[in-house]
Computed example of a mutant assay.
Amino acid sequence: MAAASHSGPSGVSGNIKFWDVRSSEIAWEIKEKTDCFSDVTISDSLSAIFKIGINSGEASYIDFRRIDSNNSWNYFGGMKKPMNGKKEGLGCKIESHGN
């Protein structure tokens, strides 16, 4: 996995890329423009990618077993909070420790 976020005149955007180590090709890519990530981590045992949104400060995840072309994030605690542009997730970190 490789992840990076970039800030520019049009706002913050980010990419998460998954590489196939056998072929050295990109296997899957997620492009973020709405609520880019402050930090991202993967849990192999839970088959999920977790992120902290830079604008909302919300923790969310994508289930690898149900990933689709929409790349829709599932937010913890129900509905997604509206974006207010305050960058409440700036500097937040998320880590996975085993399970």
Rank of each mutant, 00 (worst) to 15 (best):
M83R: 06
G8I: 02
I67A: 09
Y75A: 03
S45L: 11
S47T: 09
I26D: 01
S60L: 03
S43G: 12
A27V: 12
S7D: 11
S13H: 06
P82Y: 09
K80N: 02
K51P: 12
W73M: 15
R65C: 01
K33H: 05
R22M: 05
I52T: 08
K33T: 11
D39K: 03
V40A: 10
D39P: 01
K51M: 11
I16Q: 07
S43P: 01
D39C: 00
P82C: 15
N74A: 07
S72M: 10
G57E: 02
S43K: 06
R65P: 06
G57A: 07
I42H: 10
I16G: 12
Y75T: 14
F50D: 10
P82H: 06
A59P: 06
F37V: 02
T41C: 11
P9T: 10
S10T: 04
T34K: 15
S45F: 14
D63Y: 08
L46V: 03
H6K: 06
N70W: 13
D63W: 14
S56F: 13
G53Y: 12
F76K: 09
H6Q: 11
M79K: 06
D20Y: 01
I30L: 15
K81S: 11
Y75G: 07
I42W: 04
G78C: 10
Y61H: 02
F76R: 05
I30P: 15
K80S: 02
K80R: 04
T41Q: 04
S24Q: 15
D20K: 00
V40H: 03
N15Q: 12
E58T: 15
G53R: 04
N71V: 09
S5T: 06
W73P: 01
G11W: 00
C36H: 11
I30V: 04
D39Y: 01
G57D: 08
G78D: 11
S5V: 09
R22A: 04
S69K: 04
F76D: 14
G8W: 00
I49D: 13
R65W: 11
I49V: 07
R65Q: 09
T41V: 05
K31P: 02
I62D: 00
N71E: 07
N55W: 07
I52N: 11
I52H: 02
W73K: 03
K33L: 10
W73S: 08
F64M: 08
D68C: 10
W73I: 03
A48I: 15
N74C: 03
H6Y: 03
M83D: 02
K81G: 12
